[in-house]
């Protein structure tokens, strides 16, 4: 059956996509973007009891240039939004964003003049994590789900096609306010 049979033992075959996905997901370096309450839970996740090191991501990077996952932990104010975007722009691709907590995801209970109603107004978000604040277990779960997503990420021309498809899909989507949700 082709190439596999001719290989010496101890060699596995895979696709470049899968290998890249595997290495990317198992060495995610998060950039600390601790803002409010969620930041404390994020620190607790990194500390003793929950021990994020088990999933190969205890290396919280202070410098965005060395990080590939931005965990936006907390409420983003109008004053912070430009800073957040700058940090995001400074990160090297490929990069992912996790909106931790309801404030980062949608503005949450702070529906007012000071808070950006969801960090997705400023940067593209790959994973939303509800909770106020989410428990460390929830953060770990969100990260594991994100890792799954990263594992299956496409590369090269396939990635470009995916982007175009996603863009088209998004263009056809109804605006959030016009969606009927479960009432449809």
């Amino acid at each position: 059956m082709g190439l596999e049979e001719k290989l010496p033992s101890g060699i596995l075959l895979t696709t470049v996509e899968k290998l890249a996905g595997y290495s990317r997901k198992t060495s995610l370096w998060p950039a600390t973007f601790g803002l409010a309450c969620c930041a404390i839970e994020m620190m607790a996740t990194g500390a003793g009891r929950f021990d994020l090191a088990r999933f190969g991501m205890e290396v919280f990077r202070a410098s965005p240039r060395q990080a590939d996952l931005m965990i936006v932990a907390g409420r983003v104010s109008q004053k912070m939004a430009p800073v957040l975007r700058q940090i995001y722009d400074q990160m090297a691709s490929p990069k992912w964003v996790l909106a931790m907590g309801v404030c980062a995801s949608s503005g949450g209970m702070f529906n007012n003049y000071a808070i950006v109603q969801g960090v997705d107004h400023v940067v593209p978000v790959d994973m939303y994590l509800p909770g106020c604040p989410p428990r460390p277990e929830m953060l770990i779960d969100a990260i594991l789900k994100l890792q799954e997503k990263i594992q299956n990420e496409k590369m090269g021309s396939a990635k470009r096609e995916e982007i175009v498809l996603n863009e088209e899909f998004a263009r056809k989507e109804l605006p959030l306010l016009e969606r009927k949700g479960l009432l449809a």
Binding site: Q78, K79, N111, N112, Y113, A114, L177, G181, A184
Partner: peptide
């Protein structure tokens, strides 16, 4: 506390809360 170029004084009574509509199950 507000950005330097912010217009208005947010905690006066004539300044609205400036929230947005929220959709929940339609």
């Amino acid at each position: 506390l507000m950005p330097d170029d912010w217009p208005g004084f947010p905690q006066r009574k004539d300044y609205p809360l400036s929230g947005v509509d929220v959709e929940y199950k339609g």
